[in-house]
Measured scan of single mutants.
Amino acid sequence: TGIVNVSSSLNVRSSASTSSKVIGSLSGNTKVTIVGEEGAFYKIEYKGSHGYVAAEYI
């Protein structure tokens, strides 16, 4: 489990890349469940599926 540490919002992406499609966003202080790690990204549970967020902001 981690907490989103941004002042505005954090993009949730379809894969572990900044060039991948943005599938949603999370606001600051949102609690997320981390299920894996790929490079600089965490794989998280997101809306019944999975998404990827930049690990530096969690």
Rank of each mutant, 00 (worst) to 15 (best):
G28E: 08
V22K: 06
K21E: 13
G28V: 11
S19V: 09
I58P: 02
V35E: 04
S27N: 11
T1C: 15
K43Q: 06
K43A: 05
K21G: 08
S8D: 13
Y46P: 00
G2K: 06
S49A: 13
N29P: 07
N5R: 11
G36R: 05
G48Y: 05
K21F: 09
A55W: 06
E37M: 15
N5C: 14
S15Q: 13
S17D: 14
S8A: 11
S17T: 09
S7I: 11
G36W: 05
S17L: 07
V4A: 05
S14T: 08
E56Y: 08
L26W: 02
S27P: 15
K31T: 12
A16Q: 03
A16R: 05
F41S: 03
S9L: 11
I34E: 01
I58K: 02
S27Y: 09
A40E: 12
K21V: 11
L26A: 03
V22P: 05
Y46G: 00
L10S: 04
S25H: 14
I34C: 04
E37N: 09
T1I: 15
S49Q: 12
N5Y: 08
S25W: 14
V53N: 01
G28M: 11
N5A: 09
S49L: 10
T1Q: 13
G2C: 11
V53D: 00
G24N: 01
L26Y: 02
T18A: 14
T30G: 05
G51N: 01
K21C: 12
A40C: 12
S19Y: 10
N29A: 09
Y52L: 00
V12M: 01
H50E: 07
I44K: 00
V53F: 03
S20V: 04
V6C: 15
N11Q: 14
K47W: 06
V32P: 01
I3K: 07
S15L: 08
I58G: 01
H50C: 09
T1P: 08
V53G: 02
A55S: 13
V6T: 14
Y52R: 00
S8N: 10
T1L: 11
I23E: 01
E38V: 10
I23K: 03
V32R: 00
G48V: 03
E37G: 07
I23F: 03
V53Y: 02
S8I: 12
F41G: 00
E37L: 15
I3W: 15
S20T: 06
T30E: 12
G36L: 05
K21A: 13
V6W: 07
Y46K: 00
S8V: 12
S9C: 15
A54G: 08
G39F: 05
Y46F: 13
K31D: 05
I44H: 00
A40I: 10
T1H: 13
V32C: 04
S25V: 15
Y52H: 01
T33P: 03
I3E: 05
V6G: 10
S27G: 10
N11G: 08
G28N: 14
K47V: 05
I3M: 09
V22T: 06
T1R: 08
V6L: 08
K47A: 11
Y42R: 02
S49E: 09
N29M: 11
I3F: 14
I23D: 01
Y42E: 01
S27H: 11
A55M: 15
S20E: 03
N29S: 08
N5E: 06
V35H: 04
S49T: 12
S25A: 10
V22Y: 05
S15I: 05
T18I: 13
G39K: 06
H50W: 15
E38G: 02
E37R: 15
R13V: 12
S17C: 10
S14V: 13
T33Q: 09
V4G: 04
I58C: 03
V35T: 07
K47P: 02
F41M: 05
T30A: 11
S9H: 12
S9N: 10
K31A: 10
G24K: 02
F41E: 01
I44Q: 01
K47C: 13
T1N: 09
V12T: 02
Y57R: 06
G24D: 02
S9R: 13
K47M: 13
S7D: 10
S49C: 09
E45W: 10
S27W: 10
S19F: 10
S49G: 15
V4C: 07
V32K: 00
Y46V: 02
N5L: 11
G51Y: 03
N29C: 15
F41V: 02
G28T: 11
L26T: 02
N11P: 15
I34H: 00
I58N: 02
A40Y: 08
S49P: 01
A55P: 02
V4W: 04
A55G: 05
S20W: 05
Y57T: 05
S15M: 08
V53E: 01
A55N: 06
S17I: 05
V22I: 14
V32L: 05
Y52F: 10
S7N: 11
Y42S: 02
G2V: 08
S25N: 09
K43I: 13
S25F: 13
L10Q: 04
G36H: 06
A54Y: 13
E37P: 05
A16F: 04
A55K: 15
S7Y: 09
G2W: 11
V12F: 01
V53Q: 00
L10A: 11
S27Q: 13
V32S: 00
G39L: 05
S14W: 08
Y42D: 01
L10K: 02
R13E: 03
E37H: 14
S14E: 15
T33R: 09
K43N: 02
S17V: 05
K31H: 10
E37S: 14
G28L: 10
G24S: 02
I34V: 06
K43E: 05
E45T: 08
V4L: 05
S7W: 09
S25C: 15
A40L: 11
I58F: 05
G48R: 04
V35R: 04
F41H: 04
G51H: 02
V35Q: 05
S14N: 09
E38C: 13
V6N: 08
L26K: 00
S14C: 14
G48E: 07
N11K: 13
L10P: 07
G48C: 06
I44C: 05
K21Q: 12
S25T: 15
S20P: 01
V4P: 04
G51M: 02
E37K: 15
S17M: 07
